[in-house]
Each structure stands twice: as structure tokens, then as C-alpha cells.
């Protein structure tokens, strides 16, 4: 198959038509946008293996991911997607650029996960994007942006709690998403220590602040032992994931917004509009009357909110809905 794209750490083979593509993990390791670079023999193999384990786990949790199966030890078959040119970074603890940018100490635990976006653009050096800039650049619609944030929070919750079982803290990670031909959003790219920070929790009660970095920071910061630590992660994941993660739930609180459908008569909104004017608020041109519900769920299983809306909460003929997960870290 022909090479479709070659990045710093991966090669993508795709013929431009097929519904699937192949993703090969390379031995190359780079840092600081390619300024530091070398080959570590065996890294491609171990990252491929870690990524496969994590994607298989997410697939078992019915998360929509591009991962289909392993073709060889270093090559995965994935769903061909229209990639969204955004890197989604989610942070549970402070490390890397955020420490400098916000003056926060490394290792600080955030009260809720922080989501940030970067535009994938080498010429501009992958700049940080705020949400209104994403909408302005028309990279994503508002509702797709909400969906990606929801997906990111769920994936983060699941991975955070899987690693936690191996006494590893998921500090932060970078995710990428793409659309399939039905405009459904899928998690893409890789899930490896190349794009997530993982710290081995210290069990030494004398030095509770001590921990060990297991991820690419070992290379960035010249700590050495990249391959050994990657192998450690892979082994720990095998140990944890050998037991089915059926008890791992995703408890969330969500805000659900119900809107009257555009074009339909909205007498309540119209009445409120005229009442506002009567009180002297002449600037009020139009009020649409919807509802906001806050739901606390013990497990946000796939399509739960959609099914609940369809069967009870909304009248599909006259209302539409959107929801957002209220970010939380839970007990880790």
C-alpha cells in the first residue's frame, strides 16, 4: 500500500479510497517540534503494543475509535477518517508548558480536568486555540466541539482510572479526532507515552512527593531509559487489563439543554419577549424558551442520553437537545 502521510513517529498507508488505512509505528523519537530527534530501536514496537492495548480497552467500553485490529506487531489497521486539524490536550495534573504559562508548580492536581486546543499547523508552530477561535476558523461547529469535549472527558476518565490501577497517574495527554463518512466523531492517532505523561506514584511514605516519570519526558529532559520505562508501562497495562474492566463506570454529571425547534411556534418565548418589553427592556428582540436539566449518572454508557431524550425528555417533533459533561476527576 502506498504511503499516504509520514509524520515524526508514524507512517500512514492509505490508497485514498479504502475505508481502512494502516498505521505503522516508527522507532524515531522527537521533541521540541523535531528540534531534538533520534531513533530508539524497539520504541515503535512497544508504542504500537501500548496503543493497541488502550484502544482495545476503549473499544470494549464502546468508545468510537479508529482502531480496528493489529496487522503486525508494529502496524495497526484503522478506520480511514477525515482528520480534524486540532490537537485536544487534557490535563489532570500540571506538567509541561502549562506550568510556565500559568506559573503553576509541576505535579499540581487540578480541581477538574483542563481541556485545551491547539491548531495543527507547523508554519504557525501549532498555536493554542480558544474555543471562539475554533468556531471562527470554522474548524468545528459548536455542536461538534461540544461532542469532542464530552468524548475527551470520557476517554480521560477511563484511562485515568485504568492507569490508576497500576499506581500510575495520567498527568495529561494529547488526543486527535476525525470524522467518518457519516460525520460521526472517532478518536484517532495513537495512545502511547509519546503523547501522554504518565508518572509512577511513589509508595515511599518518607518522600511522598517523589515520583517517577515514565513517558517521553525521559527523552525531552534527557533522563534516559526511554525504552525500559515504556516497557514497564506496557507490562503494567497487560497486568491491569487482563481482568475485564466491567466495574469501571463513568459517573458524570451533565447539563442537558432542550431547545424548541427552529421555525416552530414558541408561544412561551413570545410571551416572555412581550413581557420584557412591557417592563421597558425594549432591547429584547426575541426569547426562545428551552429547558436546562442537570443529570447525575452512575455510568454514562453509550447512547444513554440520546435514548433517554428520545424516549422521555424531548419531543422529537418539536424539540432538539445538546449536552455537556461537567468536568470532574473523581477519586484518583
Amino acid at each position: 500500500m502506498m504511503t499516504y502521510k509520514e509524520g515524526k513517529a508514524k507512517k500512514l498507508y492509505w490508497n485514498g479510497e479504502s475505508e481502512t488505512a494502516q498505521m505503522e509505528f516508527k522507532d524515531a523519537i522527537t521533541a521540541f517540534n523535531g528540534q531534538k530527534q533520534e531513533d530508539i530501536k524497539g520504541k515503535g514496537l512497544i508504542n504500537s503494543s501500548i496503543s493497541a492495548k488502550l484502544f482495545n480497552f476503549l473499544n470494549s467500553k464502546k468508545i468510537k475509535t479508529h482502531y480496528l485490529k493489529q496487522v503486525s506487531s508494529q502496524v495497526a489497521e484503522v478506520k480511514a477518517l477525515q482528520m480534524i486539524p486540532i490537537e485536544v490536550i487534557i490535563r489532570n495534573f500540571a506538567a509541561g508548558s502549562v506550568c510556565e504559562r500559568l506559573g503553576i508548580e509541576e505535579g499540581h492536581k487540578f480541581s477538574r480536568p483542563i481541556i485545551q486546543f491547539h491548531l495543527k499547523n507547523d508554519n504557525l508552530n501549532d498555536p493554542l486555540l480558544c474555543e471562539s477561535e475554533i468556531l471562527e476558523l470554522k474548524v468545528l461547529s459548536n455542536s461538534d466541539l461540544k461532542k469532542i469535549k464530552n468524548q475527551t472527558l470520557i476517554i480521560n476518565w477511563l484511562l485515568l482510572h485504568v492507569f490508576s490501577q497500576a499506581a500510575i497517574d495520567l498527568i495529561d495527554m494529547k488526543l486527535e479526532f476525525g470524522f467518518d463518512t457519516n460525520h460521526e466523531i472517532y478518536l484517532a492517532d495513537e495512545l502511547s507515552p509519546d503523547n501522554m505523561r504518565l508518572w509512577l506514584r511513589n509508595t515511599d511514605s518518607q518522600n511522598p512527593d517523589n515520583f517517577k516519570k515514565l513517558d517521553k519526558d525521559r527523552y525531552r529532559q534527557g533522563l534516559g531509559g526511554v525504552l525500559e520505562n515504556y516497557e514497564f508501562i506496557s507490562d503494567k497495562l497487560s497486568e491491569v487489563l487482563i481482568s475485564p474492566q466491567d466495574n469501571l463506570k463513568t459517573p458524570v454529571e451533565i447539563n442537558l439543554f432542550i431547545y424548541p425547534q427552529a421555525g416552530l411556534l414558541d408561544p412561551s418565548g413570545r410571551t416572555l419577549t412581550s413581557s420584557s418589553k412591557q417592563l421597558g427592556f425594549n432591547e429584547v428582540e426575541n426569547i426562545k424558551f428551552g429547558k436546562c436539566l442537570t443529570l447525575k449518572l452512575s455510568d454514562l454508557r453509550v447512547n444513554l442520553v440520546e435514548d433517554l431524550c428520545e424516549r422521555l425528555l424531548i419531543s422529537p417533533a418539536s424539540e432538539s437537545f445538546e449536552y455537556e459533561i461537567i468536568p470532574s476527576l473523581g477519586a484518583v
Binding site: 416552530l264 411556534l265 408561544p267 412561551s268 413570545r270 410571551t271 419531543s315 417533533a317 418539536s318
Partner: peptide, 16 residues
């Protein structure tokens, strides 16, 4: 209508 045993839906009166 809510139960789907009859078609359509009953919205607020036009005059609210």
C-alpha cells in the same frame, strides 16, 4: 401522542 399510540404532537396554543 407522547406514547406514540397516536401520531403528531400537541404544542402550546398559538395564543399562549
Amino acid at each position: 401522542t407522547e406514547a406514540g399510540l397516536l401520531p403528531g404532537t400537541l404544542l402550546s396554543n398559538k395564543a399562549a
